[in-house]
Amino acid sequence: MTTVYPSHGGRAAFRRKKVVQVSDERVRRSSRTIDVAAPAGVVYGLIADAERWPLYLPLNVYVERLDFDGVRERLRMWVIAEGQVTSWMSDRVQDPARRRVSFRQDLIVESTRSPAGTWTVRELGPDRCRLTMDYEFTVVDARPEDVRWLERATAVNARSNLRSLRFLAERWPRLDELILSFEESVRVKGPPELCYGFLYDVGDWPEQVPHVRRVGLAEPQAGVQRAVMDLAAADGTTQTVDSVRVCFPHAGRIVHKETAVRKLVAAHCGEWSVVPDETGVTVVSQHHVALCEEDIEPVLGAGATLEDARARVRAEIGRQSMETLRLARKHAESAVRVL
């Protein structure tokens, strides 16, 4: 299971045109369109809700909303582009009346300027709309390979985003039941640094955390981990989960996004946070999960419901988180304090 949302191939849904202007500065433009069998307002809502994108969009790892006044917002995004975790700032303007969200990104690739774009949702009927994503950037003396990289990454990500948004929007009547968010926490009387250290050292988990059987870990960039974990489920079976973890030691946070998910799950992301206060530390594990309807009967048996799937996923992820949190507490509280 490597793609999070099933792709709906076969439909000639993408129309793409590219205009190249000739001058000293070359403007690259692209435009992609997809028709969605859902109300325009639903699609717009998914685009406006950028903080949820890690759950909605397979290539989106994490979004931090820095400012939002109801119309203008400033976002910091971590996204998988061409297999690498990349980050940029995005200034967006929301226009719900016209169902448009325009955005301007800071430099992604050197020597390109003003990457910017617009999401537009046009109503075609009560349950039908057309979603368009326009994107452009200016090339100034950029290396051709950088330009190609950006064009390729933009194309792949735009296609993936449009497909995922359509997939979600077309399930809108059940979206609330398909998505679940929850958290577990423990109180620790020990140093926050040790709690964080335990959560960061995911490579050591197989020796310490019973439900983790194996971890393959790579840290291609400082603080950006890619972990492949074999996890023991309650029924004794093993499931493999791949995730990207972005570690923020200055904030005591590790955000994670599963890129290959467990059974019953279509998307999964979350965060570990170490929150010190006057009297101790609270360590929190937060999860956002979108369930995979197509898995329910094959996994849970004929007649199993969405409610059964919710309960199963909630219990399993909750149990595993709690186990890890308790071990983090034990690690922090039992440490012999030198000095």
Binding site: R76, F248, H250, V274
Partner: peptide, 16 residues
């Protein structure tokens, strides 16, 4: 602040 400072490798939190 801590999130803006970005991902960083050290194993221990060094709270800003």
């Amino acid at each position: 602040l801590g999130t803006a400072m970005g991902p960083d490798a050290p194993e221990v939190a060094k709270d800003v």
